[in-house]
Design a protein around this nucleic acid. Structure first.
Length: 627
DNA sequence: GCCGTTTTCGGCCCGACTGTTTTCAGTCG
């Protein structure tokens, strides 16, 4: 607990000031990862050996996903073992941890203009071409490239043509109008639309989602579709001719890619009927997961591609001609089994230990939507919601929940018309009346079908503001009257880490606070995470049994999968909530569940898979744990 | 640059599509 105490200790302000100054030079895992990715990019442009550049990118990813703060650990003289980080990169990390700088990186930046690396963002333009353009025409940024292309200078470079000029100008235009990555729910809606448009194509047996959407990643770049069809030509024809197509990026016999009008790129791959297994694996990814599978296949004498497993000869090449041997499978389960692996859930396919767990027989049984018995975070029109308390409760009841917690905002969040003590009392009475009605209907057998045996109850809660001064927005006497208190932080988000952490700690230690909602306070692609001492927060949440929310709003998905995994490792228990402000948003639960699955979360770790009695008992016992 | 229960050196995952070419390199996923 000592680091926890240190982080919130205010008795010696001078000590705090020293700590903050040291922290200033400590790079976060994210910053380290960005730097090593950039190094990888610069080495690519320099024309370095491809495997060297890959090594830097791989190390960057591993650092980004590391459960420990890497720079902090190095500074403490306690460098963690990170897969993909060997002697050379480890030395660089040590230098960064000590000095906050890296000479190798700074020298590289003088050799390779940073704007050169930005040119790699242009679709179709890779490191070789960037290098070629730099060396022949001295082009070192996108502006110069556009200028040269417009003036017809590129066609004189060996290996390029007038056509290349055109496609480069096209790529620049694409980059400038490129939409942000899609949120999960947006991507899903677009894909459903495209799948609907493809239905009825002659020969088509089925179309399914693949790629990052099938892994339920929190944001989606390109969309991937797989199709089983007896007539590939007809399908490709239909696909590239869809009304929503802006332009066709490429088109072959088995695959095609389109860019949708004001929308993302969509890739379609055709699978021969009955051979979906390896295709689904290949196109669901992610890349690192696939590389691991191919390595394992190769160790066993087979080459794995989307087409199936091909027997390798003694030269390490697939056998050809009459000796060729190809194994295909109808399902992913069979294709995994060929490698003596069990089926691995798509959400886990990120090469974050799932292969090892599969081999050890320790893959988790992931939480599902059906496991949830309630929703601990919902709003009504009495604060910033859209539907009435009754409408929201009725909708929750019809979902088959045993409980739903009404968590309208507390008084200080004026922007959301937060409730004062008087309106809190009104709301309590309203909740009581509704519950009487629900109980009556259950007794009379007129409750909606699907109502669980323990019946449905609307639990009385609030979303309690953790104010900028660190105080909670209601006094303890009032808080003690709630069934469930959900605390969250919306204001004073830019305070320094020590201050922010102290505020959250104060909420965690309050005997009446049961859940911390959207702990990182992020809005995906719009607002950064709160700068908290996460290890301290997780340790205290675990000690006090305060539940940490996985917020299902596709804008939040907070905790993130990485953080949730760390929280669980630290002994925390979670909730998965919709944070619904209208009836339809109760469906946000599905995105929260997918995020939890990506974090390896099992049902028992999620408090709202519990019965109502168990949940209420858990929160009632918090005072014992805090003391 | 990383890595090793075959290896401390010599490997490192795979194929489609595109464009500029006559046999392939670059890019992408």
């Amino acid at each position: 607990m000592s680091h926890v105490e240190t982080a919130v200790d205010t008795t010696n302000p001078e000590l705090d000031a020293v700590a903050v100054e040291q922290d200033a030079a400590l790079l976060t895992n994210g910053q380290l990862a960005r730097m090593f990715h950039e190094i990888g990019d610069m080495l690519e442009v320099k024309g370095e050996l491809v495997y060297k550049t890959v090594a830097y990118h791989r190390a960057a990813d591993a650092i980004a996903h590391s459960p420990v703060e890497v720079a902090e650990a190095y500074r403490a003289g306690n460098p963690p073992r990170i897969p993909g980080v060997g002697a050379a990169i480890s030395d660089k990390l040590a230098e960064l941890a000590q000095t906050g700088r890296l000479q190798f990186y700074e020298r590289l930046r003088t050799e390779v203009p940073p704007t050169l690396v930005e040119m790699l963002d242009l679709p179709g333009l890779g490191p070789r071409t960037v290098k070629l353009l730099y060396e022949t025409l001295g082009i070192e940024n996108v502006e110069a490239l556009r200028d040269a292309a417009e003036r017809g200078l590129l066609r004189d470079v060996k290996g390029l043509s007038a056509r290349t000029e055109e496609s480069i100008l096209q790529a620049i235009a694409t980059l400038e109008t490129r939409p942000q990555r899609l949120l999960l729910n947006q991507a899903n809606a677009i894909v459903d639309q495209v799948i609907g448009d493809l239905e009825g194509t002659p020969g088509l047996r089925r179309v399914e989602k693949a790629g990052s959407l099938r892994r339920w990643q929190e944001t989606i770049g390109d969309l991937d579709l797989l199709a089983e069809t007896d007539d590939p030509d007809a399908l490709i024809e239909r696909f590239v001719g869809l009304a929503a197509v802006d332009r066709v990026l490429n088109r072959g016999s088995y695959k095609a890619a389109i860019k949708l009008l004001r929308g993302p790129q969509v890739d379609l791959m055709v699978m021969p009927p009955g051979e979906a297994g390896t295709y689904e694996i290949h196109f669901t990814g992610n890349k690192d997961h696939n590389v691991r599978l191919r390595g394992r296949a190769r160790d066993r004498g087979w080459s794995l591609s989307e087409k199936g497993y091909m027997r390798l000869g003694e030269d390490g090449e697939p056998l050809a001609g009459p000796n060729a041997e190809l194994r295909t499978f109808a399902t992913e389960g069979e294709a995994y089994a060929f490698l003596d692996l069990p089926f691995i859930e798509p959400e886990l396919r990120q090469d974050r230990g799932e292969i090892e767990a599969a081999l050890a027989g320790t893959l988790p049984t992931l939480v599902t939507l059906a496991d949830l018995n309630g929703d601990c975070h919902t709003h009504s029109d009495r604060t910033d919601g859209v539907h009435t308390v009754e409408q929201m409760a009725e909708a929750g009841r019809r979902r088959g929940y045993a409980y739903q917690v009404l968590t309208d905002h507390s008084q200080s969040l004026a922007i959301a018309r937060g409730l004062n003590a008087e309106r809190v009392e009104e709301e309590r009475e309203l909740v009581g009346l509704l519950n009487q009605k629900f109980a009556r209907e259950e007794e009379q057998g007129t409750a909606p079908p699907g109502t669980p045996p323990e019946g449905f109850r609307l639990l009385f809660g609030c979303e309690l503001e953790i104010r900028a001064d660190g105080q909670l927005d209601f006094p303890d006497e009032l808080l003690a009257r709630y069934d469930v208190v959900v605390a969250s932080l919306h204001v004073g988000r830019r305070q320094p880490r020590v201050e922010l952490t102290r505020r959250v700690m104060n909420a965690l230690r309050n005997p009446n606070v049961d859940i911390i909602a959207h702990p990182a306070g992020r809005y995906i692609q719009r607002r950064e995470d709160l700068d908290l001492d996460w290890d301290a927060v997780f340790a205290e949440a675990a000690r006090t049994g305060t539940l940490l929310e996985m917020n299902g709003s596709p804008h939040r998905l907070d905790l993130s999968d990485h953080r949730a995994r760390r929280a669980v490792a630290a002994g925390c228990t979670l909730t998965i909530d919709s944070d619904a402000h209208r009836i339809e948003e109760l469906d946000y639960m599905r995105w929260g569940v997918s995020q939890a699955r990506r974090a390896w979360v099992t049902p028992e770790l999620v408090a709202n898979t519990w019965s109502r009695a168990k949940l209420l008992d858990w929160v009632a016992r918090k005072p014992e744990r805090v003391s």
